[in-house]
């Protein structure tokens, strides 16, 4: 039995088992509910505008979208922001705003930006029990005589990734369909193309965070502690980075312990930057995976 075949078997078993045990059901429904909740935050003002100003439907939507985008990216007074956008220091922000707001379906861009902030936490729900669940109940002892620890971990990681990617695809598909059918603001062509690109960005972004969830699942023997550990790490890294940066600038680089510092470049207009960011994300995922493999291989189970 080759290791690769065993990895696929473990992935399939993990998918089936997580759905049957209910944790997968909870993960899917929670992620989709929260994801669509984000979408509703973005869509709601537009829907209101459409209802109150039907005669200006097309223009109003884009106008409100522009305001929303700018407000989201840099809270403050709109008039001041427009002035600021023209200044040197906000050139990049202006470029980003125009790129996301004017060149692509506005609402989808904003929804994906919001999802990019929430998904890292939600993805932990799909991976926290990968290893810790079996370790806690010692059921891993039935598997170990028949497989290697590395195959087991890689298989479970692959299963968690497939589950996460499926959920992200369902979520993104629902949002794109809703935008296309109920709020036909941007043509289907642009919507689908940008939808696929943003979907790819979210799929890549999922890799390091799912790997982190699996790593925590190998470090802690209780699934709930693993979940708290991974979510805590994801949330405290930016908090510590931002607060300590005030004291000493280099401490701001703590943000790069996770993809927080560069993940937004997955939506960059520059293809080279996107490719580099994808490689960074995959590299981050690889580092977490290697640590997890080393940890599991040395662990007392």
């Amino acid at each position: 039995m080759t290791g690769r075949w065993q990895i696929l078997l473990h992935a399939r078993n993990f998918l089936s088992h997580s759905l049957r045990s209910g944790s997968g059901v909870a993960f899917i429904v929670l992620t989709v509910m929260v994801g669509l909740g984000c979408a509703s935050l973005v869509f709601f003002p537009i829907e209101s505008e459409i209802i109150t100003a039907k005669e200006y439907k097309e223009n109003a939507a884009q106008g409100v979208g522009t305001i929303l985008a700018v407000v989201t990216l840099q809270p403050g007074k709109f008039s001041t922001l427009i002035e600021q956008i023209e200044t040197e220091e906000l050139v990049e922000l202006a470029m980003w705003g125009r790129y996301l707001v004017l060149d692509h379906p506005v609402l989808l861009s904003l929804t994906v930006l919001l999802l990019g902030l929430l998904l890292p936490v939600l993805l932990q729900l799909g991976s926290f029990a990968c290893i810790a669940g079996d370790v806690q109940h010692h059921s891993i002892r039935y598997l170990l005589p028949r497989t290697t620890r590395t195959s087991l971990l890689l298989g479970r990681l692959l299963g968690a990734l497939i589950l996460s990617w499926t959920v992200i695809t369902c979520l993104q598909g629902a949002i794109v369909m809703y935008l296309g059918i109920v709020l036909p603001l941007d043509g289907w062509g642009a919507l689908i193309a940008w939808g696929l690109q943003t979907l790819a960005a979210l799929v890549v972004l999922a890799v390091p965070y799912v790997a982190l969830g699996v790593l925590c699942s190998t470090i802690f023997r209780s699934p709930m502690v693993a979940l708290m550990g991974s979510v805590g790490f994801i949330l405290t890294v930016p908090l510590i980075a931002f607060s300590s940066r005030e004291a000493w600038e280099p401490l701001g680089n703590l943000l790069y312990l996770l993809p927080w510092g560069y993940a937004h470049h997955l939506l960059s207009p520059d293809g080279t930057v996107v490719v580099k960011t994808v490689l960074y994300c995959l590299g981050h995922g690889l580092i977490f995976t290697v640590i997890a493999v080393l940890r599991l291989r040395r662990a007392d189970l």
């Binding site: 078993n13 089936s16 088992h17 010692h138 059921s139 002892r141 039935y142 497989t147």
Partner: peptide, 26 residues
């Protein structure tokens, strides 16, 4: 190995769990 304190998954049928273990043997 028949471990003393390990438990089988409660959400999957016995036969499916055994088939999975056997599939790991190829």
């Amino acid at each position: 190995v028949m471990p003393q304190d390990a438990i089988f998954a409660r959400d999957v049928s016995i036969v499916d769990q055994m088939l999975f273990l056997r599939s790991l043997d190829g």
